[in-house]
Amino acid sequence: MDLELFLQQLANAISLGSLYALLAIGYTMVYGILRLINFAHGDIFMFGTYMAFYMMTSFMLPWGAAFIIAIILTIAFGVLVEKAAYKPLRNSPRMSIMISAIGASFLIENLAIVVFGGRPKSLPVPDLFNRIIHIGNVSVVSITFITPIITMVALAILMFIVNKTKTGMAMRAVSKDYEAARLMGIDVNFIITFTFAIGSALAAIGGIMWGLKYPSLLPLMGVMPGLKCFIAAVIGGIGDIRGAVIGGFILGLIEIMLIAVFPELTGYRDAFAFVLLIVILLVKPTGIMGKNIAEKV
């Protein structure tokens, strides 16, 4: 592989990795607080992309407004999922909550098939994201650069919220110890809703970026990215936001680079993430940034 091709692939890998990172943050935050795999997260991501599509085509809004409204609608949707599928089961066995999550995910997917239709829709890509940029002999579509930048900005805002604000402090407290946080007067339900809202906003941003990069929208488009990003969160150490970002980038890099180096592996692309998951669970189950916690009797 020559240098130019390598740089091109590297740009692609970073761009894909930052999309994965955006989704993985949502998984890791919900898991940190509720100890629950939000199976519906990938479908919330899909919902965000479709909302952007409908805002731009049916309502003819300019893309900036369309994206912002899509993000707001997705936040509302994510909170609705939490209220309907997870909140009633807060004190139920883990298995019930997981089944409810799987049920919610299937419900959203199939409702999407019924409402949005099963045929692929294509998101109109605004000019700004579709320019071809030449750097030396390497030519890259501008979305490839815009995605990591937006991810970094979103991450900076998120880090500020989590580390500097009072709500962020409450979030960290709830994820450390749910019961103790409640005894300290933290409104746990509000914090959980807030966490879902942030996760859904990031999923919507990721979804729109995804739609601009791969402009073919399908009701089941969230399933594979969803599973992979959960794996990215596990790789990074679940519950840790920086870990999720690192995991997302690692996964993006591995996926793009392995195929670039060994093109004959293309058919196995969707299996890489799962193989990586098994390896990480065997070698370091707590992930890269995770800490070991002994199980209490």
Partner: peptide, 8 residues
């Protein structure tokens, strides 16, 4: 256990 088993 639990969710990790499910996803694995």
């Amino acid at each position: 256990n639990d969710d990790y088993l499910a996803i694995a």
